[in-house]
């Protein structure tokens, strides 16, 4: 039997909002350490890696490892039926072909359950090599979302250039060109609002704006976002989910023709 209960049910709602536009289906791999999900988008340009640790749930039971293939649009529709303050429980019998979501209102007066058929997905798991990144940028997630939204109006691609002075986001297109420079925050009094750059080597890479805007759907999960870059390897955009895990997006760079 698999059962995972989360008082902060809104986290699951936000996680689905953060991945459903990028992925149509994915497998939730559950074991006694928690829930993992790893899937590439249909074009195989980006990859989502979600981890929700067992100790972040208010109750977590996983008698036997279980992989549940799900249509993420369906899961998103079901989770939209949960209130922001509801407790959400996911449960499934061993080798079941359905999963049940139970939503309990804060005062326990309303309890809803939704049963959904599971899918047989033989999604390939990619090996993501541990990488020492040349540049790591931590910044407010809302700031990053704003930059991606603004610059994607100017062009399909965004250049991210990280140096010791700071990080510059640029885009050019028909209507012109745009540059946004963020300096490293000097006095870090409020960590969440700071721009913190760790740089071993300067790095400049080009990425498709469309995917970056999909990634920023995760903004509500964390006040900060962390960008990790090295020459000629995929960008990592990471949103930490407080006390339970993270969602990481990987995006392959674009190269000059």
């Amino acid at each position: 039997m698999f059962e995972a209960r989360l008082l902060r049910g809104s986290i699951l709602k936000k996680v689905l909002e953060a991945i459903k536009d990028l992925l149509t289906q994915a497998t939730f791999d559950c074991d006694d350490s928690g829930i993992q999900l790893q899937a590439m988008d249909n074009s195989h340009v980006s990859l989502v890696s979600l981890q929700l640790r067992a100790d972040g749930f208010d109750k977590y039971r996983c008698d036997r490892n279980i992989s549940m293939g799900m249509n993420l649009n369906s899961v998103a529709k079901i989770l939209k039926c949960a209130g922001d303050k509801d407790t959400v429980t996911m449960k499934a019998q061993d080798n079941a072909d359905t999963v049940t979501f139970v939503f309990e209102s804060p005062n326990q007066e309303k309890v809803s359950d939704y049963e959904m058929k599971l899918m047989n997905l033989d999604l390939e798991h990619l090996g993501i090599p541990e990488t020492e990144y040349s540049c790591t940028i931590r910044m407010p997630s809302a700031e990053f979302a704003r930059i991606c939204r603004d610059l994607s109006q100017f062009g399909d691609s965004m250049v991210i250039a990280c140096t010791k002075e700071g990080v510059k986001f640029s885009a050019t297109g028909e209507i012109g060109s745009a540059n946004i420079k963020l300096a490293q925050t000097a006095s870090v009094d409020k960590e969440e609002e700071a721009v913190i750059i760790e740089m071993d080597e300067p790095v400049t890479l080009t990425f498709a704006c469309q995917y970056l805007n999909y990634f920023t759907k995760a903004t509500s999960l964390s006040p900060q976002v962390q960008l990790s870059m090295s020459a000629d390897v995929p960008l990592v955009v990471e949103y930490r989910i407080q006390d339970i895990g993270h969602i990481r997006y990987y995006l392959a760079p674009k190269i000059e023709d």
Binding site: L126, I128, K254, D257
Partner: peptide, 14 residues
């Protein structure tokens, strides 16, 4: 123009 790389060339396949 720029060419979009695919992830498989960076990450080991299954």
């Amino acid at each position: 123009d720029e060419i979009q790389e695919a992830l498989q060339i960076f990450f080991t396949g299954p």
